[in-house]
Design a protein around this nucleic acid. Structure first.
Lengths: 216, 216
DNA sequence: GCTTGTATTGAACGACCGTTGAAGTCTATT
DNA sequence: AATAGACTTCAACGGTCGTTCAATACAAGC
C-alpha cells in the first residue's frame, strides 16, 4: 500500500477535529471520536490524558503551521514594500491567504480545522484561553503591521477593525450554509474562490472607512 | 412589592437564555437551568416539553420583537429617502441599531440573548434551522433593500457582504473578551458606544468596496 | 364546599458520560 | 528465545444526563 500509515494518535486527532468542528466540545463524546477513528475507547486517555487535552492537541497541531506561514508572508510583504510600510491590503492578504491556500491545496483536515477555529473563536468559555495561547503572539504582530499601514487610524479603530475582520472571516469559515439558503443557491459557503475574491476587498475597504472616520 | 411577578415560564426562559449563551446547548444541563431559575427540575418538560423546545422558545421570544423593530426602521429610512432608494448606511443602521439600542436601554436579558444568537449563528448544527425559521424573512427584506441601495454591486457581492456583515456583528455580540486582551485593556468588548461608532462605518465602507470591485 | 383543571413536587428511570486499571498483545533489543 | 517497553483491549466504575410519572398543592367556577 502507498498510504502513509496513519498512527493512532493521528487517527484520533483527525476524528476529533472533524467531530469537534461539527458539534462542538460538549456535543461530541469520546466514544464517538474513537468510533470514527476506529480505535479503542481507552486510547484517548492513554495518548492524550483526557478529552480536554485532546481538544487542545487538535487546536495546536495545525496552529503552529498556520502561524509560521502567516509570519513568513507578513515578512515578505514588508520586505517588498520597504522602506515604506506595507499596504493594508497586503497585510490583510498575509493574514487571510494562508488559510485560503490551505483550504484549496491541502487535505480536508484543514477544512474541519478552520470550522473548529470558528467555533472556538465565538465561544466565550475556556476554549478561548487555548485560542489566545496559540495565536496571540502572531496576531499582535499583524495588528502592529496594520497600525503602520494605516497611520491615520487610531489604535482603537485598528483593534475594533481587527475584531470585525476576524468575525467576517470566522463566520465564513464556519460554513454554516446560511449563505446558500439566503441566496437560494446562488452563493455557496464552501466556495473558497468566491470568498477569496471578496473578503480582502471588503475588510480593506472597511478598515480604510474606519481610518477616514478619524480624519473627518 | 412593585415587581412584575415573573411567571415560572419566564423564569425558565431567563435562566436558560443566560446559561445557553454562556456555555452553549450541550454545555448546559436542565438541572443547571432549573437551579438558576429556582424552580423544580420537572417543570422544563411540563411547560416546554423538553430541553430542545426550551432552547427554541428562548430564541423565538425576543426574535419576533427584534424583527418588528428592524422592519419598522427599514420602512422609515425607505420612506425618508423615497422616491430614491435609501442609502446603504441607512439600511445597515436599520439592521444594527435595534440591537445596539436594546443593549443600551433594555434589560440584561437582551445582552444574553445576543450572545446566544452569536453562538447559534456560528454553530453548524441543528440550531441553525431555528435561526432560519425566525430571521430569514426579515433578512431577505434587508438584502433586497441593500441591492436597491447599491445598484452597481452584483447580487453575489451583496450576499457575501451580508455574510461578512453578520460575522462582524456576531463576533462583537459574542463578547469573547479577546478584544480586551489583544488591546491590553484599551478596548472593551462590552463597550456598546464604541461598537456603535465603528461597526456601521466599517461595513458600509466594506460593502462599497465590494461594489467598486465589480465596477473596476 | 366540592369539583375541575392547572401547576408543582419529589423520586426514580434507563442511558450515556469520561475515566480507570488490570490483562493482554505486539515490537524491538539483547 | 527471553526480556523490556510501548501500545492496545476489555470490562467496569461512579456520576450525570434528559425525561417520566404518580402524588400533591393550588386556584377558579358552580
Amino acid at each position: 500500500m502507498a498510504r502513509p500509515k496513519r498512527t493512532t494518535k493521528e487517527k484520533l486527532l483527525d476524528a476529533a477535529e472533524k467531530l469537534f468542528a461539527r458539534r462542538g466540545f460538549h456535543g461530541t463524546s469520546v466514544r464517538e471520536i474513537t468510533g470514527e477513528a476506529g480505535v479503542d475507547l481507552a486510547l484517548v486517555n492513554y495518548h492524550f490524558g483526557g478529552k480536554k487535552p485532546l481538544f487542545a492537541a487538535v487546536l495546536e497541531r495545525r496552529g503552529a503551521m498556520l502561524n509560521e506561514e502567516r509570519l513568513r508572508r507578513l515578512a515578505a510583504v514588508r520586505r517588498a514594500a520597504a522602506p515604506q510600510p506595507a499596504s493594508a491590503e497586503a497585510v490583510i492578504g498575509a493574514f487571510f491567504d494562508p488559510i485560503l491556500d490551505f483550504l484549496d491545496h491541502a487535505g480536508p483536515g484543514w477544512h474541519s480545522y478552520f470550522s473548529l477555529l470558528a467555533w472556538v473563536n465565538n465561544s466565550p468559555e475556556w476554549g478561548r484561553r487555548l485560542m489566545s495561547k496559540t495565536f496571540d503572539a502572531t496576531v499582535r504582530e499583524f495588528i502592529r503591521a496594520l497600525m503602520e499601514s494605516l497611520p491615520d487610524a487610531a489604535p482603537e479603530d485598528i483593534f475594533w477593525g481587527y475584531n470585525f475582520l476576524t468575525g467576517a472571516l470566522t463566520l465564513s469559515l464556519a460554513e454554516t450554509g446560511r449563505l446558500d439558503v439566503l441566496s437560494d443557491g446562488l452563493c455557496r459557503s464552501t466556495d473558497v474562490a468566491a470568498l477569496r475574491a471578496r473578503l480582502g476587498p471588503f475588510v480593506a475597504a472597511g478598515l480604510r472607512g474606519l481610518a477616514h472616520r478619524d480624519a473627518r
